[in-house]
Amino acid sequence: MGNRIDSHQHFWKFDPVRDSWIDDSMQKIQRDFLPEDLLPLLQQNQFSGCVAVHASQSEEETEFLLDLASKNDFIKGIVGWVDLRASNIEERLNYFSSFKNIKGFRHVVQGEADDFMFREDFRNGISALKMFNYTYDILIFHRQLSAAINLVKHFPDQPFVIDHIAKPDIKSGDIASWKKGIEEIVKYENVSCKISGMVTEAHWNSWKPSDLKPYLDVIFENFTANKLMFGSDWPVLNVASDYSEVVQTLEDYMSQLSTEDQNKIWFENASSFYKL
Score class of each variant (00 low, 15 high):
Y253G: 06
S7M: 10
G197A: 13
A147N: 09
K167S: 15
I170H: 02
L276W: 07
L212M: 04
K187Y: 01
V109W: 02
K275W: 04
I138N: 06
P40E: 07
L129A: 09
L216V: 00
R85S: 15
D217K: 03
F223Y: 05
Y215F: 15
K103P: 07
Q158C: 09
D6S: 07
I22S: 09
G77A: 15
L41Y: 06
W204G: 06
E60H: 15
N269L: 10
L212D: 01
N45D: 08
L84Q: 08
S196Q: 13
K76E: 12
I89Y: 10
H203W: 01
D23E: 04
H154K: 14
K103V: 08
N72E: 11
S127C: 12
P214N: 03
V199G: 06
R106D: 11
K275N: 14
A225T: 00
P16Q: 04
T135F: 05
K275H: 13
F74N: 11
N3T: 13
S272C: 10
E221I: 05
D121Q: 06
F160Y: 06
L276N: 10
V236S: 12
D32Q: 08
Q158Y: 11
A270D: 07
K194F: 05
A86S: 15
S244K: 11
I78G: 03
I22V: 15
N238D: 14
K103Q: 11
A176V: 13
P159R: 15
G111V: 07
M26Q: 14
K171L: 11
S20E: 08
Y243G: 12
L228S: 06
L216S: 01
I175T: 03
D137P: 09
